[in-house]
């Protein structure tokens, strides 16, 4: 089992339910193939730095998971087929220092997910912040 982080961008043209379904579908691929979800960071709808398949925006999700190496090939194969996924990237954390950082990032995400639980969820979604302990989730996109 290795430590991985997978980021994927879902098309902005989908409705909220469809976006959610897409995210759940990708998470299901991980869990079905023997992976273990550690944390999920919902970065929300963001402007893309450059158009991808003529889309200007995208819905970012980051999944932190532990998985066997064979899973990644399967996950990336399925994402490549999936037309609703614009971009994806998997990063492996192997060295001791990197894993320490991985745990830190996971802790930050868990904290971020717990903190705005009291507030309505819609306010959290458009926050364009990157995952960092210092980042305030309250910062809104103009």
């Amino acid at each position: 089992m290795n430590h991985y982080e997978t980021l994927f961008v879902v098309k902005p043209t989908l409705t909220d339910e469809e976006t959610k379904a897409q995210i759940e579908k990708n998470i299901a691929i991980i869990t079905d193939n023997g992976g273990e979800i550690v944390a999920i960071d919902d970065m929300g709808m963001r402007k893309l730095a450059y158009p991808v398949e003529k889309n200007e925006r995208g819905y970012y999700t980051v999944v932190y998971h532990k998985a066997p190496a064979t899973l990644i090939a399967e996950l990336e194969r399925q994402m490549r087929y999936n037309e609703d996924v614009l971009k994806f990237m998997t990063v492996k954390y192997a060295k001791k220092k990197e894993i320490a950082q991985y745990d830190k990032m996971v802790a930050a995400v868990v904290k971020k997910n717990d903190a705005p639980a009291a507030q309505p969820k819609q306010e959290e979604a458009p926050a364009p912040e990157a995952t960092e302990p210092a980042a305030e989730p309250a910062k809104e996109e103009a």
Binding site: L7, M43, V62, V91, K97, E98, A100, Q101, M105, A130, T131, E132
Partner: peptide, 10 residues
């Protein structure tokens, strides 16, 4: 800084 995360644009 020990590690630079690509998502941390700042």
């Amino acid at each position: 800084v020990e590690f630079i995360d690509y998502k941390d644009l700042n």
